[in-house]
Structure formats: structure tokens, C-alpha cells
């Protein structure tokens, strides 16, 4: 199924325009499509990585700067074998009512570990990658942070990547 059903209506319609009106230039618009890369091995043999903008990070390391006026353009590594109790959320821009009770609703680390154990996927990269979604300079994010994480994903020999832009 693709379009026009009741299920395709988002809870906050007009989000792109709303944010861009308040913070002009903060929201990216693209005209082109990136050619699809091909999965080079069966899913059951593929190493999966996960990239999140939910501000999830290991407890005890430098927290994201959630109050900087133009955002925080750094990322954190999250060991893919971590337990939810080892992790903490630093961000202010989405409701964490669900995530504070079960982190998997925004950072499904336990589900991904299960899929790796069950052989649905071949395995997980040693680390997942995390940053915060509050970044007002979209062009800067694209030029620096996005490229850095993409390099890391390649370095960790990922065959595929799941992303959750919070």
C-alpha cells in the first residue's frame, strides 16, 4: 500500500512549512532523487547499522548541547550491544513520554539485537550513531555531520542502514 489512505495522514500536518516559517532555511528541500544502492548480500548475512537523531547516548559521556541556538553538530557512538539502562536521552524537541518508559519506541536497540540473534539480519555494526535533530543550519549538517557519520558507517562495514529521524 502506498498512498491516500487514512493511515497516511500525519498527526502534525504541515510540519515542514510550520518549522520553516518560524526558522527560515532550517528545513531542507531537495529536487533530485539519489539512485538506489543495491543490497549486496542476503539480509540474513547483512550487517546492519542504525542512525538516530533522537539524542540517545551512553550514560556518562559529554551530553549533547541541547540549548545551543543553532544546534549541536556532533555525534555519539552507541555500542550496539548496549542495554537501554546504559543509555540516556539528551534532547528537547520531541515528546519522550514513550521513550522514557521503553527506549525501543525511538531507539529500538533491543529489537535490533533480537533480529541479529535470530538471524533475520547477519549482525550489527559495533556501534550505532546518534545526534540531535535540533540543527538550524541544514546546509552545515549536510556538509559536515552527515558526511562524518556516512564515513563511519562505511568504516564499520555496514551492508545496510536503518535511520530514525526523530
Amino acid at each position: 500500500m502506498t498512498d491516500n489512505s487514512e493511515a497516511t495522514v500525519q498527526l502534525r500536518p504541515g510540519l515542514w512549512a510550520t518549522v520553516n516559517k518560524r526558522y527560515p532555511g532550517s528545513m531542507i528541500h531537495k529536487d533530485d532523487y539519489i539512485p538506489l544502492a543495491k543490497l549486496r548480500k542476503p539480509l540474513g548475512e547483512a550487517r546492519l547499522s542504525f542512525v538516530s537523531t533522537a539524542g540517545v547516548q551512553p550514560v556518562g559521556i559529554m551530553p549533547f548541547d541541547t540549548v545551543h541556538p543553532i544546534g549541536d553538530y556532533t555525534f555519539r557512538r552507541v555500542p550496539s550491544d548496549a542495554k537501554p539502562a546504559d543509555l540516556k536521552i539528551h534532547q528537547l524537541k520531541y515528546p519522550t513520554t514513550g521513550a522514557l518508559r521503553d527506549l525501543n519506541v525511538i531507539f529500538p536497540i533491543e529489537r535490533l539485537q533480537e533480529f541479529a540473534r535470530e538471524g533475520v539480519i547477519g549482525g550489527l555494526t559495533e556501534n550505532f550513531f546518534s545526534f540531535i535533530g535540533y540543527n538550524m543550519d541544514a546546509e552545515r549538517l549536510e556538509r559536515t555531520l552527515a558526511e562524518s557519520i556516512a564515513e563511519q558507517v562505511v568504516a564499520e562495514c555496514a551492508d545496510a542502514v536503518l535511520l530514525a529521524p526523530a
Binding site: 500525519q10 544502492a37 535511520l163
Partner: peptide, 25 residues
């Protein structure tokens, strides 16, 4: 972000709750 990974030849898929934002990017 996702486009940067895909451009390196690694297939990507994202989960979105904001359809209009996704249509733009």
C-alpha cells in the same frame, strides 16, 4: 544524512512520522 550513506553504495531506509518533511527531503 540518509542520502550521504546511499551515495556511498550502502542501501538505506528510514522511519518517518512526518510525511511532508520526508516528501521535501
Amino acid at each position: 544524512m540518509q542520502r550521504a550513506v546511499e551515495r556511498r553504495g550502502i542501501p538505506t531506509v528510514s522511519i518517518t512520522v512526518a510525511r511532508d518533511v520526508t516528501e521535501h527531503i
